[in-house]
Design a protein around this nucleic acid. Structure first.
Ligand SMILES: [Zn+2]
Ligand SMILES: [Zn+2]
Ligand SMILES: [Zn+2]
Ligand SMILES: [Zn+2]
Lengths: 133, 133
DNA sequence: CTCCGGTTTGACAATCGTTCTCAACTGATC
DNA sequence: GATCAGTTGAGAACGATTGTCAAACCGGAG
């Protein structure tokens, strides 16, 4: 069996620190390439492939949220660990984390109603923020 | 002004008919390439680029729903015209269209609460269907 | 029916985000 | 400082999607 796969250790390298650090410097969703560029401007030289790899790890660990633009490009944002959704400004990208039992209950009941198990969901709200109105 | 752009006519060509027809032959979400292949098997020879173009048109016209796989690939499915969401089986893709005032109200109120206007949203529910349980 | 201009098509090239490859590099550990 | 698994980065490779553009098509005017 390939059983024992005890989650290989994770080294806190310069690059990983730089990416995590960079993620705290903005509040909207950005693409891996944007983040790579941002790192460059800051003087933190990190390979593009490493940025992609690190963002994946962070996403798996639930430390960043991933969304898909209409074109299918992945965009990332640091986030709180608990389950939540986003209210995103279509114009400037300003994002608010939102949550509430209403939708959680609704999705669960709808799924149950149709006999679906192991339910999960994705929900994003888009609009024009007060500043961009 | 480049005003007069009265939506160029849309000719019902053999290819377009074939794609629309093919879309009625399955109920889950499929990629453009899957659909292209399906057309080939049926004997309807249609260029891949045309399949992409047609699906785009159909999506714009609201005649098919588009989703993104976790990997960012676009998948399509014929759908009813009114606003709704999907309950999709993670294992076999079986899809149920769902709707209800609860979420619609919730998203609207959440957005209003934060001063966001022109609100829209996306919501998909995933689970294991009874057949795959 | 024939001609004409705009629409559509499809083979193929080109994009472009993302992943893969793999040799060089790092950091713990002893 | 020797060891060794985890990391990195430059560049190649990938794969979905879009762009190109000449040839095929269409519907209506003449
Ligand atoms: Zn805004
Ligand atoms: Zn939720
Ligand atoms: Zn199923
Ligand atoms: Zn809705």
């Amino acid at each position: 069996m390939t059983s024992t796969d005890p989650t290989p250790p994770l080294r806190p390298t310069r690059q990983r620190r730089a990416v995590v650090e960079a993620m705290t410097s903005f509040a909207d969703f950005r693409s891996a390439q944007d983040i790579h560029e941002l790192l460059g401007e800051r003087g933190d030289q990190v390979g593009l492939a490493t940025v992609y790899r690190t963002l994946q790890r962070l996403a798996e660990a639930g430390e960043v949220d991933v969304l898909r633009t209409e074109e299918g490009e992945a965009i990332y944002r640091r986030c709180s660990e608990s389950h939540h959704h986003h209210l995103v400004c279509r114009s400037c990208g300003a994002t608010v984390e939102v949550e509430g039992p209403t939708v959680e209950r609704w999705t669960r009941s709808i799924a149950a109603e149709h006999g679906y198990a192991e339910v999960s969901h994705t929900l994003e709200i888009f609009g024009t923020c007060p500043a961009c109105a």
